[in-house]
Design a protein around this nucleic acid. Sequence first.
DNA 1: GTCTATAATTCGATAGAC
DNA 2: GTCTATCGAATTATAGAC
Lengths: 194, 194
Amino acid sequence: MDDPGPGPSGGAPRPPGARSSDRTRAVILRAARAHFARHGYERTTIRGVAADAAIDASMVMRYFGSKEKLFDAALTIDLRLPDLTAVARDDLAHVLLRTFLDRWEGDPADDALLVLLRSAVTNERAAERLREIFAGQVAPALGEAMGPRRAGLVSAQLLGLALTRYLLRVPDVAALTPDEVAELYAPALDAVLS
Amino acid sequence: MDDPGPGPSGGAPRPPGARSSDRTRAVILRAARAHFARHGYERTTIRGVAADAAIDASMVMRYFGSKEKLFDAALTIDLRLPDLTAVARDDLAHVLLRTFLDRWEGDPADDALLVLLRSAVTNERAAERLREIFAGQVAPALGEAMGPRRAGLVSAQLLGLALTRYLLRVPDVAALTPDEVAELYAPALDAVLS
DNA sequence: GTCTATAATTCGATAGAC
DNA sequence: GTCTATCGAATTATAGAC
């Protein structure tokens, strides 16, 4: 689809027998994320991923070993949460919501969050990864100041928003503009943070 | 597993050639809901359902026609929402949350809600059913008084709670007692209803 | 009404040629 | 590094005996 060009190593032709493995690997992973994000783990096929990556199915196996290992690679996610301990208490809900919206609606080609949430509902391995990410990235970022109970319920609110807006596409929720979401939902987050 | 007994028709033995089709159908549907609820649509197999119903796999096909039609039958759900228009505005959040908790934690054998939510995330047919239920049961029950935007966001909050507590089982959310949930989450619902 | 046997696909994974 | 060919397993669905 897109042409990544000759890469940072310059325009010189590769020596005979050279491997373009890094790029091929990235192309496969990108296609895999797109499939996992749209269809979940079980409906995603190695053959389908390979077709999207314009490569043979056996190459996917060669690069990632198995469908499960490919899945693990697709589930490696960095939420890139900012440091929230420095945010004033009164601004926290708003900052949280803006960070959330920026990430979910920022780069349409970034399927990482979609993969994680969609898969976690029917796949125990993905659910475990989601819990790890919550415990390792979300809870530390906002848990210090408010304790695990409120941190958990804030996550429930944000995941509920992602679920209805981006996965289930409930019309009344999906139709809102980002500004409307921020305006209407921030007070709700704030209520849990009290 | 459980013995439904001779049924309301009394203890008399059936005449030769009699059909117990109604009961068989109910047993299959019960087993199907349990499977769909735990594994989602794709991982659920006719063979697995049949085994749990202590019956042959071909009987499931005979009674329901196909896996998809069995799924449709399992997705027929009545939320049994009370009339919320009569509830005082200040009590609405609390009543809503209690109704929600009662339904989700009431009858452990009632897998209907679990089936719907889990399947809807990876199955477009189920997602469509969920949107229909929202539009046909949830929105009318609470939408009149507050408009679609707030009704949508209330649903996002409640589905987020169901997602993290009953499907993903995020420890910090699953560990809360129902009373704690009601106490901590009601103000958040209330904030959206303002 | 219930089960046996099997057809027809589809998929993950492997072996080996080039 | 890439592709062809194929195996073995699992699944939905059907035909037909009892």
